[in-house]
């Protein structure tokens, strides 16, 4: 059964018999109005961002998307460095976070003894609850100095011939931001993966065990193929989170409007540009350009999150539709 069973109020035949008392009409009308309000909210966000960013959109046109300049004095603005930083830091974070998150989900569903499941699950949940700004502060004062002293010089000395690892190891920069982003999105990917893993019918797993498969073989041969689109959804959800993450990145990315191949160099993301410059922007064109950046970020993240949601719905429908 893919569809949830209707609430009694949705049962048309019952409601046709007698006219609803006025209290129920008010009740249905007002809850419906509030449901519309939620829809109106997201619509208003899009319209307002577009209209307030219109000055920048009409001044720069599509060139805004690939212009690399960001010069408040000459009023020449382009989004490319911020978009580049946003996308690269998030993709790196996903690269780091995905295997670890799936590992955690496997641990929680298939491996951990019951007495360990709860505390570990709670710990992972706590990791998600720690506010973004705390990650940022810890990243700037504790983690970045460690990166500068140990990890980055080591990367430079072993892999320094690659353009990815050149420049001065300052601690802050793209790589540090990506690692912190990865830590922040691990709990989200892990908890969604755990949920989709638990959708796998026990019978399928037990059949594989009955054929003599090891735990890992069951995971690789039954659980993961069963939940592939759900896992993709989980990763997309993490990606959506990482793209819009603000405070943690603002602390550690270094805030430089430039595109650099090296992961050790400071960079910028859309969110960190907004956090740093919005309250200081004075001219209308400057503010409008920042709002257009916000619109771009909103469109990118909602697209990614919508895709994630779509994937997760598909797996739920698939599991509920299949005979158990």
């Amino acid at each position: 059964m893919a569809e949830p069973s209707p609430a009694p109020a949705e049962n048309r035949r019952a409601s046709r018999k007698a006219p609803a008392p006025w209290g129920d009409i008010v009740f249905k009308g007002s809850t419906t109005a509030f449901a519309f309000l939620v829809l109106a909210l997201i619509g208003t966000i899009c319209v307002v961002l577009y209209s307030k960013g219109h000055l920048a959109i009409s001044t720069f046109g599509f060139k805004f998307l690939w212009n690399t300049a960001w010069d408040p004095v000459r009023e020449d603005f382009g989004a490319l460095p911020s978009i580049f930083g946003t996308v690269v830091s998030s993709l790196l974070a996903i690269l780091i976070a995905t295997p670890i998150s799936i590992g955690i989900a496997v641990f929680l569903t298939e491996m951990a003894p019951p007495w360990l499941q709860k505390p570990v699950g709670l710990g992972v949940e706590m990791l998600a609850a720690v506010p973004s700004i705390i990650y940022g502060m810890w990243g700037l004062f504790i983690f970045a100095p460690i990166m500068a002293r140990t990890v980055q010089p080591w990367l430079k000395s072993t892999l320094g011939f690659l353009p990815l690892f050149q420049g001065i190891p300052m601690g802050i920069g793209m790589l540090t931001a990506a690692i912190i982003l990865a830590i922040m999105i691990i709990p989200f990917i892990a908890s969604v993966s755990r949920d989709v893993f638990s959708l796998v019918p026990a019978m399928a797993k037990e059949s594989a065990y009955g054929l003599g498969a090891t735990t890992w073989e069951v995971i690789r041969g039954v659980v993961i193929p069963h939940t592939r689109s759900g896992l993709v959804g989980a990763v997309f959800l993490g990606l959506g989170r990482a793209l819009g993450e603000t405070m943690a990145v603002t602390f550690v990315i270094g805030n430089a409007h430039r595109i650099s191949a090296s992961l050790l160099n400071p960079s910028n993301t859309i969110a960190s540009t907004l956090a740093n410059e919005f309250s200081e922007a004075t001219s209308p064109l400057y503010i409008s350009s920042l709002i257009e950046l916000g619109l771009i970020l909103f469109l990118i993240t909602t697209t990614i999150l919508a895709l994630a949601k779509f994937m997760l719905w598909r797996i739920e429908a698939q599991v509920k539709g299949a005979p158990r």
Binding site: I45, G240, L297
Partner: peptide
């Protein structure tokens, strides 16, 4: 999961 900073801009 929408970015909270965009809500701030809005």
């Amino acid at each position: 999961s929408a970015p909270s900073i965009v809500i701030g801009v809005f």
